[in-house]
Computed example of a mutant assay.
Amino acid sequence: MNTKNPHIALSTSRLSIGYQHKKQQNRIAQDISFSLQQGELAAIVGVNGIGKSTLLRTLGRVQPSLGGEIYLDGKKLALHDPLELASKISVVLTEPIASKNLTVVELISLGRQPYTNWIGTLTDLDKEKINDAIALVQIGELKHKKCYELSDGQLQKVMIARALAQDTSIMLLDEPTSHLDLYHKVHILKLLRHIAHETKKTILFTTHEIEIAIQLCDKMLIMEKEQSSFGEPCELISNKNFENLFPTDTITFDSQTGSFKVKK
């Protein structure tokens, strides 16, 4: 893997993830290797409990890895100081927001924290980035609403706008389409695809919407415990990587249509 390639935004080499308690390691998944270029939309998929969220948190340095390496712009993730990291990676996790009493614009403004002074004064540049994020996600009409007044889909857009306002080159999102109906799932993922391709940000997200991800993503990572598969969706299909994702006596993968079929 050429981690020095200036077009590689985020990459891993034989990464192991999990949790460490005192001297005991609970390794969830290992041998995870991939590389993402600027402007790519990529999904992390796999069965429940395989470590999709754990991987995302490890990539965002919310928790430590158990082995292997993560590279950000060709430099080891561990060598970035916290402020530098906050200007390069934004993370949208599934935890509920601290206060739904904030207005939409107040919540989005929190994305500028890595750049503001100690009292959090917004400069003209900060306000410009906030307005750009609101315009890109098309939520101008929600600006002054309280977050508790929003639907799940609207709140998800606001969280994406907050990450955009942070103006990082990499965005990591954990289950950005959870609790949404099919239309809004597709709408959010098409929005992320548009953002990645238009702004040249690298966007990596976890999802259970495998069939939608196959249609919209540039790259996909299929997580398995011992070794994961990575590549373009069509490449993964031709390599039959989706076919053993679920027990074949219940669900099979149709490589012709790129969809899963239930065995009756």
Rank of each mutant, 00 (worst) to 15 (best):
K88F: 01
K88D: 05
I89H: 04
V92G: 07
V92D: 01
V92A: 13
L93V: 10
E95Q: 14
E95L: 15
P96M: 06
I97L: 13
A98W: 10
S99L: 07
T103I: 08
V104G: 12
V104M: 11
L107M: 15
L107Q: 09
S109N: 00
R112M: 07
R112S: 06
P114H: 01
P114M: 01
P114L: 08
Y115W: 10
I119G: 06
T121E: 14
T123A: 02
D124T: 09
D124C: 11
D126T: 13
K127W: 12
E128C: 12
K129N: 04
N131K: 05
D132W: 03
A133H: 00
I134C: 03
I134H: 01
I134M: 06
L136H: 10
L136T: 13
L136I: 15
Q138T: 15
G140A: 11
L142E: 09
H144T: 13
H144F: 07
E149A: 13
S151K: 06
S151C: 10
D152M: 04
D152K: 08
Q156L: 03
Q156C: 08
V158K: 04
A161M: 05
R162P: 00
A165T: 02
A165S: 11
T168Y: 14
T168G: 08
L173M: 11
D174Q: 02
E175W: 10
T177V: 11
S178M: 08
S178T: 07
S178Y: 09
S178F: 01
S178H: 03
H179M: 04
H179Q: 05
H187I: 05
K190C: 12
L192E: 00
R193C: 12
H194F: 12
H194A: 15
H194M: 14
A196C: 07
K200F: 05
K201A: 03
T202S: 13
L204T: 06
T206P: 07
H208W: 06
H208E: 08
I210A: 08
E211W: 00
C217R: 06
